[in-house]
Design a protein around this nucleic acid. Structure first.
Lengths: 329, 329
DNA sequence: TTGTACGCGTTATCAC
DNA sequence: GTGATAACGCGTACAA
């Protein structure tokens, strides 16, 4: 038995060529494959990796998940997918599940909430997991005591705002994300900071919105109903921006001649509709998180919670243009 | 120890109320949680469920995955996500992985290929898995020896074609899916069958395409370059249809006034652009497959490979209209 | 009603 | 260079 184990695991223990061949042959013939379960039980660590997303149907998260799985599967790991629907309590439950399976690590893809009363509880669950050698990585800035690998959403919002200003736009509407999300606040703050720096605070108009198409559409309808039309609209993410585009088209307002529109994320849909946006390294974030989990030994799971910031990139497309000389609305 | 086990697993074995309370209290205090690994090892079956998709970024598959995970997680199962990039060999590898983890079941979400030389090998892997009590379910018609839970893609294509004909369209272009995919053939066959039944075989025009935006765009460009323009375009799926819409807009061809466009799938993007399409029960397919795996005991994994066909639904939106009276192009 | 002992399938340790 | 044995953490048949 031990000999077979040694051959099959490629141990450095010396084995005669003859025995080795025999083991391999028999294993082959029997269709033998070692039990990942037993292996994990004895080694106290499995090759399972958890990815916690709000909703895998949301392309923002599916791109991240793809980045995780590509790296994971290449290294012989399996990705465990969990939809948590933005509920922190569900995240806590899932962290516990990861412990039950002695996963190699858990990746938190979703943003946290401002003043979330559950967050400390989650931080505790994360600490327990780490004590068992389970790595945790967050893909947004969160106070749950684990390393962060993320883009700088505030800077992304700042840059897209700056771009629109550079095109001559002065009155800019910002359609915000879901209330109380940290990500919402970050993106809004980036917008406001840039407007302020450009001395355009009076031209900054905030509209409550959301991260989905419908929210972007509805916010834009309200915006249209309250003239004058701004020079440009920035939506907190691409999907809301597409909703905005739709609302404008229905109102026969030409983009980008009459108004410029931009988003944040650079999902596939942005390419489809030619949306100007900021490309966030979502795939790379997932991939890096997976790499971190694979490459760092379990003993180091409780290491310092350092932050890695990846860079974003402005992607000018067809929904933005230099502000036309026109009578102010 | 056994007493604790009995309390925690909710066994029917009689336990004194006092002991029970004590066990629960201590477990609580210790933050005890049973090892899913050890449990699976001894019970010879884990609460893991595999879902094999071509690419989770493709919304077609992420909706299915969401259906699977909703049912799975509600029942205490964990979803293992595998991107197989349409490679049958990768599917085979992953089935083996599911065996290693003694998964409760595997769900094949992607279509097979016509005359795929690897398919028998996959069927063998599936049989081996089934012999270990691992369920397999396919979400498309495939010859891999497992139950099928799917819509009828041919009927879906037939119905959307029939709808366009009912709107007065006679010359209809069909943008096909990727070459050699079974799904491609099914959808095309549905289109051709309907055209034939309506005695419009001469009006049926096939264009090589693909399942993505770019393919739909490119096919439509070729179509535009070869007048006369057809009365309508049906793309093999929604994403290609959106690509077609884009190409038409760039060419300043009005939809639906000059040409109608329709897709198949009814993904979110179809709602965004107001695309007429056929709604396929993707979420429900995933959910039903998961339910099947959860509800059927492992012993029955080698049961008959029956086929469950779910119904689809025509969704008329704004990209189709009655054919305008006009001089034939 | 409670406790003991075995087996699930590995790997690591130790004798041979 | 090879083989026996313990241990991983659980559930369960059996004994008490």
């Amino acid at each position: 038995m031990s000999t077979a184990s040694r051959v099959l695991t490629g141990s450095s223990h010396p084995i005669s060529a003859k025995t080795r061949a025999k083991v391999i042959a028999v294993a082959e013939q029997l269709g033998y494959s070692p039990s990942a379960l037993a292996r994990a039980l004895v080694s106290r660590s499995s090759r399972l990796m958890g990815i916690l997303v709000s909703d895998i149907v949301n392309p923002y998260f599916s791109v991240i998940a793809r980045g995780v799985d590509d790296i994971a599967s290449r290294a012989g790991y399996v990705t465990m997918l969990c939809n948590v629907d933005r509920r922190t309590t569900t995240e806590i439950t899932r962290v516990q599940t990861m412990r039950d399976y002695r996963a190699a690590g858990v990746i938190f893809a979703g943003s946290g909430y401002v003043d979330d009363p559950q967050e400390p509880e989650l931080a505790k669950a994360v600490r327990h997991a780490q004590e068992q050698g389970i790595h945790a990585v967050s893909l947004t800035a969160r106070t749950i005591g684990c390393p962060v690998i993320a883009a700088d959403p505030q800077a992304a919002a700042y840059d897209i705002t700056d771009y629109l200003i550079s095109l001559g736009h002065r009155r800019i509407a910002f359609i915000e994300g879901p209330e109380d999300m940290v990500a919402t606040r970050q993106r809004r703050d980036g917008f406001l900071a840039c407007m302020s720096n450009a001395d355009l605070t009076e031209g900054a108009h905030l509209f409550p919105g959301g991260f989905d198409f419908e929210a972007g559409h509805a916010a834009t309808m309200r915006l249209i109903a309250r003239p004058p039309l701004p020079d440009a609209i920035i939506a907190a993410n691409d999907e809301a921006a597409v909703g905005a585009l739709n609302a404008l088209r229905q109102a026969h307002i030409n983009v980008p001649d009459e108004i410029s529109v931009a988003g944040i994320d650079d999902l596939r849909v942005a390419r489809f509709v030619g949306l100007t946006t900021v490309s966030l390294p979502l795939y790379e974030m997932g991939a890096m998180a997976a790499r971190h989990i694979i490459d760092t030994p379990p003993e180091a799971a409780t290491g310092a919670a350092e932050t890695t910031t990846l860079s974003h990139r402005l992607i000018p497309r067809e929904t933005t243009a230099r502000r036309a000389a026109r009578t102010s609305g």
